[in-house]
Simulated scan of single mutants.
Amino acid sequence: MYRRFLLFCLAGSLAALPGCTWFQPREWPLSGTIEAVELPVVAEVGGLLTAVKVDDGAVVKKGQVLAEIDKRSYQASVREAEAVLAQAQARLEEAQAGSRDSTIRRGIAAVDQADAAIRLAEARQKQAEAGLNRAKELVDQVASQLEGAKQTLAYQENRLREAARLYERGAIAKQEYEAKQEAVNQARTQVNQLAAQLEVARSQYAAAREDVAAAVAQTGTAQAQRAGAQAELDQLKEGSTDYAIRALLAARDQAQARLEQARLQLEKAVITAPEDGVVLRSSVTQGEVAKPGATLFTMRKGDHLELKVYIPEAELGRVRPGETVGIQVDAYPGETFRGVISAVADKAEFTPKNVQTPDERTKLVFAVTIRISEGLDKLKPGMPADVLLPGKEDAQ
């Protein structure tokens, strides 16, 4: 009986050793913070908000109407432009009646078609440039917020160091010291969230620059085609078209461009959701006057939550894109949500500064991005989370 007791004690002591692998769990956690992509919804035209159709937290679909700006002035501009175009077209047709053969009419149609292509390309270019400006404003805004958050974090860290010295001397209560620690944690979370937002905003800005370059190239192509069509028309009309016809053609084209611009402004009076998602914040109420460029709503993609963790270089072989992992949060103890590894960084980096111990911060790690596929109705941006990766024996 005594020998059995000694063997039992020995087995328990071995299991408690830090290096013992007999009872090593098949999963072990990495920690990170859940993140989401925020999308600003910006007013492209100004005016009185006659309707705000969604509240904070509303689930919306792409193209769903979020708000409406008073359309009356824009509708009047469209009617006026339509009347001017009709008048210009009538004058042109009157001048052309009886003096244009079928060949010349086909040449005029080709020029008109080329003009339409130019206007469409220019409209797309303006839209792309507006998107680039909005993306640049968003980058500047988030960068400014991030700088402020870093200053706040530095301030809270200084206060925590002072509180630590006072707490060691017994000059302040433990509760006050812990409050300083919590303030530092909150400031650090804010810095991390803003850094992630800045990365997304910079990606959107780069994409917007590419859109502008493509739109400029398209405009140049359309203008070249128009020049060719005009050259052919000039050759056909040589000796048979006076300056009056040319002036009427130009007047008709100008009226058409004004009509298209008026219609575009009218369309922008209806504010719609750019993506499926959730309205995080509404910055306006019905009856306010919206200014062009003002952010009316901030959205989050409804099906897009991500979690970024950092894995040591020696353990890199245990993660692969497409693998399923488990995710746990303190808010739902006992529940494990699934996620899929969407990306593994190609380049190593030093552990981010928000890791607690200086020793850990000096290690080389790889960033692992996980797209959350389960629990989207429960998990929220900003939640700390643990990622459960398969144990070493599972990765072999």
Rank of each mutant, 00 (worst) to 15 (best):
L30H: 06
L379G: 01
T21Q: 15
G287T: 09
I341Q: 08
T50P: 03
A123P: 04
K353P: 06
G107E: 01
A179F: 06
A213H: 09
L166S: 05
A269M: 11
S240P: 06
A213C: 03
Q193H: 14
A214H: 05
R169L: 14
T362I: 08
P292T: 07
D115Y: 02
P29C: 10
V54H: 01
S77K: 11
I327F: 02
T33L: 12
A114R: 00
T221P: 00
E288V: 04
G57Y: 09
A244T: 15
F337D: 00
A121Q: 07
P390V: 02
T336M: 02
Q186C: 02
R263I: 05
V344K: 09
D70L: 10
G57A: 07
Q190T: 14
R26A: 14
A348W: 00
L166K: 06
E68K: 13
I108G: 00
E232S: 13
D330Q: 15
A231N: 14
K363P: 04
Y243W: 09
F297Y: 12
K136A: 11
R361A: 05
Q230E: 00
A88M: 02
R226E: 00
Q265H: 11
G293V: 01
A255E: 01
R4K: 15
E315I: 01
L66M: 10
L296M: 12
L7M: 11
Q396R: 11
L39F: 09
G131Y: 02
Q396A: 13
E147P: 02
R371E: 06
E313N: 12
A348N: 03
R3L: 14
T272F: 04
Q156T: 08
G339N: 02
D394A: 12
R100G: 01
E147A: 15
K301H: 10
Q235Y: 07
P390W: 03
A208H: 00
